[in-house]
Nucleic acid binder design. Structure first.
Length: 784
DNA sequence: ACCATGGTAATTTTT
DNA sequence: TTACCATGGT
């Protein structure tokens, strides 16, 4: 890897090995290469020992990728130790597992990690305890509010009082939140947010621990810095400054940086995780937080053709909240193909088109990826590819570790290390069925609530006092023995595969599946076998049982990405950081992309950044497609082309739609002959039932679309044109109309997509927030 | 304790 | 449309 490959800016980024550095790296500007080279340079130039380097990446996959690249660039003798390449979360786990006891809190080093599923079940249990109807507040909603509060450092009480007026909903959430934290602590469990919160707390409070990590990590690098949230930022600061958070605002002395560096790499335009608390203001404030920051801009793009870059630049510059930046092609001569546009009749047609083209590209040896906004869109593409016998790799959805049987076995393993893990316990106490039912579980739950214990700790008393039926009693005893048996194996430090095998056998799990003798059970057995194999492999890599279980908890969807896959299906989010010769951006429709839940203001800008990310994934060829109608919740609905289509300059687009009847075709005919498209041969949309609203192939809407295109190309800043059917006339329901719902009471229609009985309505209810309905199904009553 | 039924809600995005 | 959950019956 000759350094001659690097351009001057990249070289500067690599060679600046002291002090704070901010690298503004546009898409495809070789930022991974820069980080890799930086690490290699630090080591090869003996600036520091390898293990004094910490690089935080977004996914395990990226970390691993970087690791192998670094290793391949160094010779044996130079790798006297290894740099730590990790995600924020695994870094947190690593530090906590060593030091959590220094926090003098309720946690021990054996804490377990609650995944989303566990969290939801815990919240459900709390809702039940508080007898809150979980329809007025779903576990999911409660969790996202709790997570929101936690990430802002708000206690339940602070959260409750945070808004100027306390709503009923807020009260409910606060009530759940109040129980949530102690319940986690009792179970010696942390959720994803806690991992970061607790490690920050630890490093803040424990001077020696902070000193240790500050002393150890001299050079810290953070990838995808625009997606960092405040807690992650605090974590990085604690390590690099070695100072408690109370002195956050004090200036850092120049001498502090001797032999140290903090290098953050990011791109505002690719900030797409605000829903998870990430805040690009952090990157904007970096220079203020770290005076003397050296800033390097990488705008040279090595990935995509000029056509694609042009499209990307034009789209993203519509955003207001950004810093001016333009991607320049490293090879401006090679113009590249135009962007290929295809409008299909329906979702199936879109998928069929993509599959056909994918096959075509495959014949030329080109690999493709289909990018969509939501995972639900993947189904049609899977089907059409399968029909054609094209193998594909899908990222997201159910991963191996999400399978019920795998989770069950993992739950046994978690119990073996931390029997107080309530969620693991309630997951497998009757799995396989051993006669412990609701009644028994309720008794245990009562006990644990009354005494402030975990379910496991509540068991002895229940057994001794014979509080349950004799049948359940013996079942409880058996279960206890199974778990104690596993605990002993852990204490005896049996090998990882042995413990995993024991969990599958002694629990009776495998036997129960064998007796089932169904194909399904057969498949599950295979998965369990695979888990055991994974354990064998993990052992070979010197992983402990704890590593193994942590790994399962922290594995992410994007880790499923296989670089050698010829066809990859994934969401735009998962595609961040990846590149493909051929990219299909699918479902470019209002309500899908941009998503209906993010149709204005900052949210819309984030959608646009998402669009920018999608466009810039393409190296050679970019397809943009949308359907005129598709099935949504079992309803056929008409789709309006995405505003993002309008934001890509027309001259960069080639229309592949059949019959010259596409939106673009209309737009063109308007350009040519001002206004006389007549009622030519638009593909008639089959109307469902008694659909009365306007259709999208009407002259009016074509005209509207065309006008929007003009508006966009003039880039009139703020004034995003409203989509025609979003605002006004919508059959029976109108924006602003007062309605009454039997559960939520009275509210106001705040958004209305489509018309008549198929219209999708957003109604905002005081105290409940916005709710979405389909007009014909919703029990909505109009209030004069 | 388990099953079946039915109602109901749901679709962002993820470490 | 599907998937999940809660309820009620056996």
């Amino acid at each position: 890897m000759p350094k001659a490959d690097l351009n001057p800016q990249q070289l500067e980024a690599v060679h600046t090995v002291e002090g704070p550095i901010l690298i503004i790296a546009g898409a495809g500007s070789g930022k991974t290469r820069v980080i890799t080279h930086r690490i290699v340079h630090l080591i090869a130039s003996h600036t520091c020992r390898p293990d004094q380097i910490l690089a935080v990446t977004f996914t395990n996959k990226a970390a691993q990728e970087m690791k192998s690249r670094v290793e391949s660039h160094l010779n044996e003798g130079q790798m006297i130790s290894s740099p730590l390449l990790s995600t924020f979360h695994s870094l947190a786990v690593r530090i906590l597992r060593r030091n959590i006891d220094k926090l003098n809190g309720p946690y021990t080093r054996d804490f377990t990690i609650y995944d989303e599923d566990d969290q939801a079940r815990l919240v459900r249990a709390i809702l039940k305890d508080l007898s809150i109807d979980d329809k007025s507040l779903t576990p999911r909603q409660a969790l996202s509010s709790i997570s929101w509060a936690k990430n802002r450092g708000l206690s339940p009480i602070a959260y409750e009082n945070q808004a100027e007026y306390v709503t009923e909903r807020r009260e409910k959430v606060a009530a759940v939140y109040k129980q949530y934290e102690p319940r986690l602590a009792k179970a010696n469990a942390m959720d994803f947010d806690d991992l970061l919160i607790k490690v920050v707390d630890l490093l803040d409070k424990s001077g020696p621990t902070r000193e240790y990590y500050h002393g150890r990590f001299r050079h810290v690098m953070i990838d995808e810095f625009q997606d960092t949230n405040h807690i992650q930022y605090d974590l990085a600061r604690l390590i690099i400054t070695g100072l408690p958070l109370s002195s956050k605002d004090k200036a850092i002395e120049q001498s502090h940086w001797s032999g140290r560096s903090l290098c953050v790499v990011g791109d505002l335009d690719q900030s797409i995780y605000s829903f998870r608390g990430s805040d690009f203001n952090i990157i904007l404030g970096f220079q203020r937080d770290f005076p003397g920051t050296r800033t390097v801009r990488l705008e040279q793009n090595y990935r995509s053709t000029p056509v694609i870059l042009d499209a990307a630049n034009r789209v993203i510059e519509i955003n207001e909240k950004r810093l001016p930046k333009e991607l320049y092609s490293a090879d401006p001569q090679a113009q590249g193909d135009k962007i290929r546009y295809y409008q299909s009749y329906d979702g199936e047609g879109e998928a069929a088109f993509a599959a056909e083209k994918i096959q075509e590209h495959l014949r030329h040896g080109q690999y493709s990826a289909v990018l969509y906004r939501t995972n639900a869109q993947s189904r049609l593409f899977e089907e059409s590819l399968r029909r054609r016998g094209v193998p594909y790799n899908i990222v997201g959805g159910f991963s191996f570790y999400d399978r019920a049987e795998v989770k069950d076995i993992i739950a046994y393993l978690k119990l073996a290390m931390n029997p107080r893990d309530d969620m693991a316990l309630s997951r497998v106490i009757n799995e396989p069925p051993r006669g412990i039912g609701k009644a028994t579980l309720d008794t245990l739950a009562q006990r644990q609530a009354a005494e402030g214990l975990s379910l496991w700790e509540a068991m002895p008393a229940v057994i001794e006092q014979r509080l349950v039926s004799p049948r359940s009693l013996s079942a409880l005893r058996t279960f206890r023995e199974i778990i104690t048996g596993l605990i002993e194996r852990v204490l005896k430090e049996e090998s990882l595969p042995d413990i995993v095998k024991a969990a599958t056998l002694e629990s009776g799990y495998v036997q129960a599946l064998r007796e089932e003798k169904t194909d399904q059970a057969e498949g599950r057995l295979l998965n369990i076998e695979e888990l055991v194999n994974a354990a064998v492999e993990a052992e070979r890599q010197n992983e402990t049982l704890r590593d193994f279980v942590d790994h399962a908890a922290l594995a992410s969807d994007t880790d499923q990405y296989r670089e050698d896959a010829r066809v990859t299906l994934l969401t735009v989010h998962s595609a961040k950081g990846l590149e493909f010769p051929v990219v299909f951006m699918a479902g470019l429709e209002e309500g899908i992309f941009p998503h209906s839940r993010a149709s204005s203001g900052d949210d819309l800008e984030e959608e646009r950044r998402l669009c920018y990310v999608a466009i810039t994934r393409a190296q050679k060829t970019l397809y943009i497609t949308h359907a005129m109608k598709r099935w949504v919740f079992g309803d056929e609905s008409l789709c309006e082309p995405s505003r993002f289509l309008n934001e890509i300059p027309r001259e960069l687009i080639e229309d592949l739609s059949p019959g010259k009847n596409s939106w673009l075709g209309y737009a063109d005919s308007f350009t040519e002959q001002q206004r006389s498209p007549g009622q030519s041969s638009a593909p008639a949309i089959k109307r469902t039932s008694s659909y009365q609203g306007k259709t999208y192939n009407s002259v009016d809407s074509v005209h509207e679309f065309f006008n929007k295109r003009k508006g966009a190309s003039h880039r009139s800043g703020r004034s995003e044109p409203q989509s025609p059917s979003t605002t006004k006339e919508a059959g029976d329901f109108k924006v602003g109309l007062r309605v009454r719902h039997e559960r939520y009471g009275s509210g106001v229609v705040t958004r209305c997509e489509g018309a008549g009985e198929d219209a999708k309505l957003t109604v905002t209810f005081p105290g409940y927030g916005p709710k979405k309905f389909v007009a014909k199904h919703a029990a909505l009553e109009k209030v004069r």
